[in-house]
Design a protein around this nucleic acid. Structure first.
Length: 458
DNA sequence: TCTGGGGTCCTAGGACCC
DNA sequence: TCTGGGGTCCTAGGACCC
């Protein structure tokens, strides 16, 4: 925790709805709700006029409509939000080299790096007031709420205190008095489940929380969250403002208007999502080792299945194939409301060769050198391999079974899923790693011709 | 016909390694 | 032929945030 209120938190007020009102004068002064407009949509942002009717973020659009039927219900125009956000973030970076965006509409700014003459309350307050005006001018009238404090936690609490269109400074030394009467829910990381758990233990305010010793807190909420709560309840927060944070995963998912039951359709949707994810990976020069699918069933239970490659990929064909394969073991007979594909374990480089795409390590005839691809020689030589030398998704060929691809592998065993023409997924067989009838083969360059053009049913 | 889509982080168990 | 303890990696689930 700092001695001066040099952490600034800026939050654009009702951001999506405000952009809409800025761009469409007819919406100004009226309730505006931005979010999913379909039967399963939820509210992303409600204008303050709509909030007066009880419309809130994350509420189902259905409920929002019943609370405020005369509101304008809009799907998002994300490029417009991104543009407005870029304008604001650029402005903040002119002001301080240390800006940490949290989302399109929120950022921390470290004023210790802003070149101010000092960091006294009067100085930072004047500075923030000026910044708020500059944001409004630069964005064509969007308002922001700003909080200033001695830590991220306090700055964020401050920006929330009097919004919209407000500036609040928490003077150094007054933090704990400010927090004590507040609900534990002000603490980042305390959501509905944790709040209820604490409430049942008789803990409702920050003051209550402060009175609980560390051991008891650890017992209640676990190691990581317990130590965090113990510190934050005392306004102890040394988290630095960090400018660049690298992405850890990339994903695409969709909720469908009616539950899906057709497996072929599900496979097609997963394939398309895999294509979107792989394209985004390539666009950012990333690749990842772990492919995960997410399946939400009709009753909202959510399943994740993942598999990890020995080397990272950004290939549509590989991500799509693994995604479809992960679906095969799941019982979806009751209907599926959401499907998603994600890639994690990201690296900012791509292994050149693994699946035979663009490689200069091939033999002269262009065929893979089997011991490189498969590693059978290494296994036979008794060289230890931590993980199987077969990679999930890798193409293989068997003398009797024909062509297939590696589904999984374990101790000395590789499982292959054969793709019988016309009726995928075909049979699954297990082989010893040194099975001579099983060999790798090189697929044609991956294509995306299995990407379906069809939209999900309306 | 309640309950989005993009993420992050944590926990817990099992396999494996030394 | 009973049996350990730490560390890493992987998978699955869940809480949380905007």
């Amino acid at each position: 925790m700092r001695k001066q209120a040099s952490v600034l938190h800026l939050d654009l007020d009702a951001f999506f709805a405000s952009v809409e009102q800025r761009d469409k004068p007819s919406l100004r002064g009226k309730p505006v709700v931005v979010g999913g407009v379909g039967g399963r949509g939820v509210v992303a942002t409600a204008s303050y006029e709509a909030r007066r009717y009880g419309v809130r973020s994350a509420m189902s659009t259905r409920e929002a409509r019943s609370r405020c039927p005369h509101a304008a219900f809009l799907t998002g125009r994300f490029h417009a939000y991104r543009e407005a956000s870029d304008v604001v973030m650029r402005l903040l970076r002119e002001v301080s080299p240390l800006v940490e965006p949290l989302s399109l509409d929120e950022a921390f700014v470290d004023l210790e790096r802003a070149g101010l003459p000092d960091l006294e309350v009067a100085t930072v307050t004047a500075y923030a007031a000026d910044l708020r005006e500059r944001v409004a001018v630069a964005t064509g009238g969007l308002t922001a709420s700003i909080g200033l404090g001695t830590s991220k936690f306090i700055a964020k609490v401050a920006s929330d205190l009097e919004k919209p269109d407000a500036l609040v400074v928490v003077p150094p030394g007054t933090e704990r008095d400010l927090l004590r009467p507040m609900s534990v829910s002000v603490i980042p990381g305390v959501g509905p489940v944790t709040a209820e758990r604490l409430r049942r233990a008789g803990i409702q305010t920050v003051a209550d929380l402060e009175a609980v010793d560390l051991a008891e807190l650890l017992r209640l909420v676990g190691q990581a969250q317990g130590t965090g709560l113990h510190a934050l309840a005392r306004a102890h927060d040394d988290r630095p403002v960090v400018a660049e944070r690298e992405a850890k995963s990339v994903s695409s998912e969709g909720t469908y208007e009616t539950d899906l039951t057709d497996r072929r359709l599900m496979e097609g949707l997963l394939t398309r999502q895999a294509g979107e994810v792989a394209a985004r990976l390539r666009k950012h020069g990333l690749s990842g080792r772990t492919v995960t699918i997410k399946v939400r069933l009709h009753d909202f239970t959510t399943l994740n299945r993942s598999t990890t490659l020995p080397e990272p990929t950004d290939s549509t064909a590989t991500v799509a194939r693994l995604a479809r394969a992960l679906l095969t073991d799941l019982d979806t007979s009751g209907g599926v409301r959401l499907l998603g594909v994600g890639v994690s374990g990201l690296a900012d480089w791509i292994q050149d060769d693994l699946f035979g795409e663009s490689s200069d390590t091939d033999g002269a005839d262009g065929a893979p050198e089997e011991d490189e691809v498969l590693g059978v020689d290494a296994v036979e030589a008794g060289v230890k391999a931590r993980r199987s030398v077969y990679a999930p998704g890798q193409d293989v060929e068997h003398d009797e079974m024909g062509r297939g691809w590696v589904w999984g592998s374990g101790r000395g065993v590789v499982t292959v899923r054969f793709e019988t023409a016309g009726t995928p997924p075909g049979p699954v067989r297990s082989y010893a790693l040194d099975e001579p009838a099983l060999r790798p083969w090189r697929p044609a360059e991956p294509t995306e011709n299995d990407m379906p053009a069809a939209d999900p049913p309306a």
